[in-house]
Each structure stands twice: as structure tokens, then as C-alpha cells.
């Protein structure tokens, strides 16, 4: 667009500059992860001697087997496979739970005449103000007293206790034309039928966008899983990262290759989802937070 009014030569110079800056930015983002990839292909002895290099080794499959099937902890239960499974349970459980609860609550708030609707609205939206981190210790004590330590419920449900999804779906439901409800009523559809047959299909794109954002958010949780899971078979990949680093510190021959590959595995699923469903993700992110 800037091209039209400018002489040709200056345009090319500024375009080249744009590309240089963007390439530098892309490298700034990419190089650390490429280093992790490189480190997971070479033997540990080589890493200890010379650190990251440009040499691509042949240890990727060996490291993969070690990372996925050998345990790194004391109990021998936190293999890559079990951590990967726990990460998926946390990510999917969190996203699905949040979306279902959020849609239900938003539907009740937007479409029903309720005496205590305003109160419920404020009770729910106050939760947007305080992140879990500031009430982490009391939350831990409560989950402990409910006997939910080292369980999936204890891991997932306290994280769901905030209104981001409810807020998002409320905004969306408010934008749905009112004529739809009237038309549905004339056709004899009750509130349940209207919700399932009309509103849910209409919200498909929104649900997809929410799912991506919430899945990534749940998958990447660290502080809460660190506190709530003490048994190694409950570790998620992201929670396991610290243990990997501590094992690096304590041993003579740290298994760098395996550690780096686990870090890579912890990153791949959320990155793939964000990259492949980019347009939904960006739409969901920029519209939900505003």
C-alpha cells in the first residue's frame, strides 16, 4: 500500500529492511528451540564436552525411547508416556470442563429472566480479577482437606474456577439475533432444544477458538500441578521439567539428550495446535480478552 506514492528504489530498500527485521525476529524466536532439537540428537558425552553445536547426531531415536519409556524419578513411574498422558488429560479436561460450564452459565445469564441473575453475574465475574497464583496456598489447603491431592479432579477443577469462558460465551450469545429465540418458540422448541439444536451449532467456531486457547493454557500449567501432584505417576510434562533440571544438576553424566527431547515433547502438541488452527486461535484470543 505504501508503494503507490514512493519512488521505486526507496521502496525496495525499506522492504529489504522490513524483511531483515522480521527475519531477525523469527530467528530470535526459533533458534533456542532449534538448539533443543539439536541437543536431543547427539550423544550426552558430546554435549558435556562441547555443548550445542551445528552437528546433527543420530541419537534422536535412542533418546526418544529413553524419554518415552524410561522413568527419571525415584518411583520409576514418570515415563514420558505417562507424563504425556497426564498432560493431555489436564489440557483436554480443563478445556472441555471450562467450555461446558461456561456455556451453561452464560446461557442461563443471557436467556433467562432470573431474580438473582445480576448477583450471579457479579459473583462469577469477580473471579476474572484474581488469578489462582495469589490464592495458591489456601487453595492447596482446601484441596488437601477435600482429599483431592494427586487426583485429576484436584488438578483440573480448581483451575476451572474462573469465568473467562463464561464471559466469552456471554459476549457471543448477546450478539446472537433475538429473532432466533422467537422463531424457535413459535416452532414449539423449549429452552433445552433451542440450546442444543440452535445455539450450540451456531457457536461452533467460538467453541473451537476457546478450546485451543484453554487447551494450551491447561497444558502449560505449572505452579498448580507442582503443588498438587507429589506422586510421580501424576506428573505432567510441564511439571516434570523442573525435575529434569534438578537431575541435570545432581549427576556426573546428566542425560541431556533425553531431557531436551522431553522438553521438546512438552512443547510440540500445543505449538502444533496453535500453528494449524491459527486463524481460530487468533480470533479467539483477540476477541475474548477485550
Amino acid at each position: 500500500m505504501t508503494a503507490t506514492l514512493k519512488p521505486r528504489k526507496r521502496l525496495r530498500l525499506s522492504t529489504v529492511m522490513d524483511h531483515i527485521v522480521l527475519t531477525l525476529g523469527a530467528l530470535f524466536m526459533l533458534v533456542p528451540m532449534l538448539m533443543v532439537l539439536q541437543l536431543s540428537t547427539v550423544p550426552d558425552a558430546e554435549i558435556i564436552q562441547r555443548g550445542p553445536s551445528l552437528h546433527i547426531g543420530d541419537q534422536l531415536d535412542d533418546n526418544f525411547v529413553k524419554a518415552m519409556f524410561e522413568a527419571s524419578g525415584f518411583s520409576g513411574k514418570n515415563t514420558g508416556v505417562s507424563m504425556l498422558m497426564n498432560s493431555f488429560i489436564l489440557g483436554i479436561g480443563f478445556a472441555v470442563g471450562k467450555i461446558i460450564l461456561g456455556m451453561m452459565a452464560a446461557y442461563a445469564i443471557v436467556y433467562f429472566r432470573l431474580r438473582f441473575a445480576t448477583l450471579a453475574f457479579w459473583a462469577i465475574f469477580t473471579t476474572l480479577l484474581l488469578p489462582l497464583e495469589v490464592r495458591i496456598l489456601p487453595s492447596y489447603e482446601i484441596v488437601q482437606s477435600l482429599g483431592m491431592l494427586n487426583t485429576y479432579q484436584g488438578l483440573i477443577i480448581p483451575l476451572i474456577a474462573s469465568a473467562t469462558a463464561t464471559f466469552f460465551f456471554r459476549q457471543f450469545f448477546m450478539s446472537v439475533p433475538e429473532e432466533l429465540v422467537e422463531a424457535a418458540r413459535i416452532d414449539g422448541a423449549g429452552p433445552v432444544k433451542f440450546f442444543i439444536d440452535i445455539l450450540v451449532p451456531l457457536s461452533r467456531t467460538m467453541i473451537a477458538a476457546m478450546f485451543i486457547i484453554m487447551f494450551v493454557y491447561g497444558w502449560n500449567q505449572y505452579l498448580w500441578p507442582t503443588m498438587i501432584t507429589t506422586e510421580e505417576d501424576m506428573y505432567t510434562l510441564v511439571r516434570g521439567i523442573k525435575q529434569i533440571i534438578q537431575v541435570f544438576e545432581g549427576t556426573n553424566l546428566p542425560e541431556y539428550g533425553r531431557g531436551n527431547l522431553l522438553a521438546l515433547i512438552a512443547v510440540i502438541p500445543p505449538v502444533l495446535i496453535v500453528v494449524f488452527f491459527q486463524s481460530w486461535f487468533v480470533k479467539g484470543l483477540t476477541e475474548s480478552d477485550k
Binding site: L22, G25, A26, M29, L30, P32, M33, M35, V36, V216, W219, N220, Y222, V238, I241, K242, I244, I245, G259, A263, A266, V267, P270, V271, I273, V274, V275, Q278, V282
Partner: peptide, 18 residues
């Protein structure tokens, strides 16, 4: 755009690991 946004999905402790 893709190259500049994918790090969004990297968990903070993994960034710390790097």
C-alpha cells in the same frame, strides 16, 4: 506471522529450561 507467534504455546518453565 507463524514464526513470530508459535512461542505463545511454549510453557514458561520450558522457556526457563532453555
Amino acid at each position: 506471522r507463524t514464526l513470530l507467534m508459535w512461542v505463545y504455546a511454549v510453557a514458561p518453565p520450558v522457556a526457563g529450561f532453555i
